[in-house]
Design a protein around this nucleic acid. Sequence first.
DNA 1: CCCACTTTGTGCACCGGTTCACAAAGGGAC
DNA 2: GTCCCTTTGTGAACCGGTGCACAAAGTGGG
Lengths: 235, 235
Amino acid sequence: MIRRLSQARERGIPDATVARLPLYLRALNSMAERGLATVSSEDLAVAAGVNSAKLRKDLSHLGSYGTRGVGYDVEYLIYQISRELGLTQDWAVAIVGVGNLGRALANYGGFVSRGFRVAALLDADPEVVGDRIAGLNVEHIDELETVITRRGVSIVVLATPAAAAQQVADRVVAVGVTSILNFAPVVLAVPEGVDIRKVDLSIELQILAFHEQRKADRMSGGPAMAEEWPEAVDL
Amino acid sequence: MIRRLSQARERGIPDATVARLPLYLRALNSMAERGLATVSSEDLAVAAGVNSAKLRKDLSHLGSYGTRGVGYDVEYLIYQISRELGLTQDWAVAIVGVGNLGRALANYGGFVSRGFRVAALLDADPEVVGDRIAGLNVEHIDELETVITRRGVSIVVLATPAAAAQQVADRVVAVGVTSILNFAPVVLAVPEGVDIRKVDLSIELQILAFHEQRKADRMSGGPAMAEEWPEAVDL
DNA sequence: CCCACTTTGTGCACCGGTTCACAAAGGGAC
DNA sequence: GTCCCTTTGTGAACCGGTGCACAAAGTGGG
């Protein structure tokens, strides 16, 4: 049994799978609230918005937790996924940059509900330092290193202006932080071993605009219409 | 020449490429500000944080806009990418849900700087309806259909609580909106032809937590350490 | 004009991820 | 115990995307 598990999990769950686990977890939590005891891969897949074969393959990377002919035990699966994602422990998060976005993040309930705890808010603007937001005191960016070390912060959320992001990143990396969630619209340079995830709101909109334009083009021009480019072809 | 172009662009730029175009655009804009006239694929790739071969292949999907031995004309490339993404036109965006996040989005400069214009803010809470945010009046959700139709809104940003998101999505789709950016932590069901992009802040954190935990495991346990599971193996 | 140098555009091999389809495994009825 | 039904777990084909490596194309110097 142990052999089987360590064989299945080996070392390494595909990135694509890891990215979907939180999705499954959310769907499972909602099911648990509604009192469901077991769920089939088909039902869970629908709730999470994925293909059921993909769901089963994803779960198979964690181990063999289903029962053929029955499905998956909701509570047990929640436990296993949470464990795999590291949500059974408490993560201290610091938010740097308390503008509109930083404020929104500080108040965002979705963090606390998982294993995340906002442990510090930092900003460079003396105007906002000292403000009380979401039950926390906003501290000055000068305290960055102290706060991170003292409070055991392991994940830093960057909600600073673009110009400040790299500098802050350098500082937090210097005191040992290896996980950064970046909202600033810049490409951060960090040493090997530091994980960065970025969320860029305007990029998402631009992708939507691209598809929207395509849909509009198709409406008017029709699919057979060759790409016309009357004079714009040379600047 | 025209033949060449329509052949190169055909109908269909890979999704992965589309997702990176905004990145290139941002880097190019920054270069234009600094007065650079031309840029090599290598330099642009570094600025955008990608591999230069990938960059060239991406750009080749738009057409043959480089000059061998020289590089790409910065301004011309900005124009072509903007055009491809549909940013040369003005997109009216409505933000539904004016909580902390909605407010942050309304004030986010990155939208306006591209071709996006926040044309409406809507909320269900009578408390916030009437507030003035980012120069706009917050309107009641009852006005949703009217506002979207009258102001030519083609992209809707959902920043509502999870429970309200599907209902709002249904309503905006009913009046013809086919592009939605969803911040609510739910899987939305929409008809064929409607594009949804979702941003889930807590999912990003969970992915970071997973990798952070792995790094911690590797530190203490070492890579050779089999996946121990003393008693937790059966619930 | 020719040669050396730079940089693009792309053919090709490779890789991770998705999907299909089915054998294996368990549950329940009788 | 046996048979039938359900549902998992996975082998294998497939597909899109990545990156190497190089030919093609352009520049500039002599």
